[in-house]
Each structure stands twice: as C-alpha cells, then as structure tokens.
C-alpha cells in the first residue's frame, strides 16, 4: 500500500514546461562553457609544446 499522503506532488503543467526549458538552457550553456574551456586548454598546451620544441631546436 502506498502512503498517499507523502506522494510526490507534480508541478503544475505550465510551470513544468517553463522549468524544463530553463534547465535545458542552463545545461546547454554549461556544456558550451566546458567545451570552450577544453578548447582553450588545448591551445595553451599546444603553445607550450610548440615553445618547448622551438627552444630544443
């Protein structure tokens, strides 16, 4: 038997749609920020390797 009193309470339909959209947008923004950080990290690493290679001839 379920305890109905403490069942989850669904969000109102309109609110659920709105909140899902906000969360998905935030997920996209975070993924983009991570990708940019990885790209910059890659450039930095490449520059270091290039400089080392130049120094060592």
């Amino acid at each position: 038997m379920n305890d109905p009193t403490l069942e989850p309470i669904p969000l109102r339909a309109a609110a659920e749609v709105r909140i899902r959209a906000v969360v998905r947008q935030e997920a996209r923004r975070t993924r983009l920020a991570l990708a940019e950080a990885a790209l910059h990290g890659g450039f930095a690493l490449g520059a270091i390797v290039w400089a080392l290679a130049a120094v060592m001839g």
């Binding site: 989850p8 969000l11 998905r24 993924r31 991570l34």
Partner: peptide, 20 residues
C-alpha cells in the same frame, strides 16, 4: 556530460519529489 536525456530523467524523478 549533461546529456539531455540524463538531465531529463533526473528531472522526471526528482522534480515532483522536491516539489512535494
């Protein structure tokens, strides 16, 4: 990795629970 399906699945389970 913020895969859309993963985020949605967590939302499906926990949004009503947090709301309650």
């Amino acid at each position: 990795r913020l895969e859309p399906g993963a985020v949605d699945a967590v939302f499906d389970v926990y949004a009503p629970r947090l709301n309650g």
